[in-house]
Design a protein around this nucleic acid. Structure first.
Lengths: 198, 198
DNA sequence: ATGATGATGTCAGGAAATGACATCATCACG
DNA sequence: CGTGATGATGTCATTTCCTGACATCATCAT
């Protein structure tokens, strides 16, 4: 039996999420989080660079999955379809964590500082994906555009999937997003708003 | 003659920019900034919500200009062209401040915290523009897409304009950006990368 | 058992941010 | 002129975030 409970990082993440959801991000101190996890403030900062980051661990893991898919895609695929394929492959990553993701998203939405952090994470993700596309021979600005568009679709699809009323899995939600993007893309920026279908 | 020098806010902004450019954002304390401006740390926080914000004042002003142009545009214009018109109108706002803007951009680029803040400012701007478009009867997702695309073009054009080697004014740079966007948009996401021109 | 290693704790301190209150300059008004 | 209201600034105290330096504890190889 060990003096230290296992999975310190996970305990900190869990404690933080619970407290943030309960009292709000700003009303929660790092000392509280650490205490609830049975650890010390100092130890918190050994695992996470700052108080916000505790909600964003896992981003690297997700990033790695996406980049790997891009890297392994068949050589001739079109950029956006490679990106779509990558995002459509992350269902397993989130399947078990939907409830936690819902909580987390609500917490982030409620706090500007956390929104800032989320934005930079997404921007970083897009940049990394663009780099992976360029390594496949995709040129600019196609690489950046495909990645940015892909990230937008992911965010929208992810939010839709988190909605308790949503039917279907994350892959479906994201697939829908990409097909809507296709419609919008056909629609074009410069043309007038089409008449509503109804 | 007043005991207080005029334009406290401006003095703080100037002092901050100089110190950030000189020593970096992280190595500069708010106390230093205030001292250089002949004021107190406490007064700094009366003008700016936090240390970062001192670099982003003026965003509301810019935002107001853009929204006004969108608001006053002829009723039938197409969404992206309204947005383009708005951004192409901001030359006067930046004409006198190019040097300061160059410094500022370099400072922001060098610091992740400041990049976060810039990202959320741009996101807010896009959201506000989308709202203004919707008030004109533009439906979603056209409003959001046009605004987001417009902000991207602005950032790219703005960066290009800041480059010391750049010829022409900001409006030119932004106009170029929008016409490139048109090309890219024609190019389409789903099609294969065209062969390089060379 | 024992020494190396890695995880955690303890302590001290700087800097950001905020609230409460004091002080100073200006201006309107009699 | 003077005097009180108002707004800008200063002072002080405090909390919280975050970091460096060092101590301590658990584990594991030998």
């Amino acid at each position: 039996m060990s003096r230290w409970e296992p999975n310190a990082e996970g305990r900190l993440q869990r404690a933080a999420l619970e407290l943030f959801a309960d009292q709000g991000f700003e009303n929660t101190t790092v000392a509280e989080i650490a205490e609830r996890a049975g650890l010390t403030e100092r130890t918190f900062f050994r695992y996470f660079a700052d108080k916000r980051e505790v909600l964003f661990a896992g981003a690297e893991e997700l990033q790695k999955i996406l980049v790997d898919v891009v890297h392994d895609a068949p050589p001739s695929s079109q950029p956006l379809s490679v990106v779509a394929q990558a995002f459509e492959s992350i269902n397993p990553f989130f399947e078990q964590r939907r409830e936690g993701a819902q909580l987390r998203q609500a917490v982030i939405k409620a706090n500007p500082e956390l929104r800032e952090r989320e934005l930079i994470k997404m921007a970083t993700l897009a940049a990394v994906l663009a780099g992976a596309l360029r390594e496949r021979g995709v040129s600019e600005p196609a690489a950046t555009l495909a990645s940015e568009a892909g990230v937008v679709v992911f965010r929208v699809g992810f939010d839709a999937w988190l909605d308790p009323r949503h039917k279907g899995d994350l892959t479906d939600a994201i697939r829908d997003g990409f097909s809507q993007l296709e419609d919008v893309s056909d629609f074009g920026f410069r043309r007038a708003t089409p008449a509503p279908k109804a």
